[in-house]
């Protein structure tokens, strides 16, 4: 009985394909905010281009994680500015520091693979323009330009009740 209890979870892990495991590792990096954002250009018409540096056990996984990291960054970290390029930073869209915990169920579903986050971010350049660095023995670091629909994300958060609108509290 004890042997079965040990074997079942092991067999479940073992049944995950290597690609799935790599994806899980990349998702873990996102959940632990293990990625970097770099200002790329000034925002325009509700969207902004940001360079996302993601980590992953291979180049494809790290590259694919960029859109998720960009949206995660827009929610919780904000988009950094660049004084040299004179790009103003954008504040994090989620203004309640406890929101990630309070609305965990929503964010887990939103960020699941193939989830709604894909509607709000697009890799804007071909893979040939990516910057690829061998970070350490096990990880690559890949820089990708992603367009984030900042205004649309903001509206979605308000519609979902995660963020209060500017007019909340006033009689409409």
């Amino acid at each position: 009985m004890i042997l079965m209890a040990v074997m079942i979870p092991f067999s479940m892990v073992a049944s995950d394909s290597p690609q799935k495991q790599k994806k899980k590792k990349a998702d873990k990096n996102t959940a632990e905010w293990y990625y970097e954002l770099e200002a790329y250009s000034a925002p325009y018409r509700g969207s902004c281009n940001v360079k996302v540096w993601s980590y992953g056990p291979d180049i494809i996984t790290a590259r694919d994680q960029a859109t998720k990291n960009a949206v995660h960054g827009a929610f919780f970290r904000g988009i950094p500015g660049d004084p040299q390029k004179r790009i103003n930073p954008l504040p994090p869209l989620v203004d309640d520091i406890m929101a990630e915990t309070t609305y965990k169920e929503f964010f887990d579903k939103f960020f699941e693979n193939g989830g709604a986050y894909l509607r709000y971010a697009t890799k804007t350049m071909s893979a040939g323009n990516d910057e690829i660095l061998k970070y350490d023995k096990k990880n690559y670091k890949v820089g990708v330009i992603v367009t984030v629909q900042y205004d649309a994300l903001n509206k979605m958060l308000v519609d979902q009740g995660i963020k209060k609108s500017l007019t909340s509290g006033f009689a409409k």
Binding site: A42, P43, Y44, R45, G46, C48, I87, N88, L90, P91, D95, Y150, N154, K164, L166, T167, G169, F170
Partner: peptide, 19 residues
């Protein structure tokens, strides 16, 4: 247009605290 998009969120955050 770039300028309005760049500063709008800073601006509305201040407005929100005022409201």
């Amino acid at each position: 247009e770039e300028a309005v998009s760049s500063y709008f969120y800073d601006f509305t955050t201040q407005l929100k605290s005022y409201f």
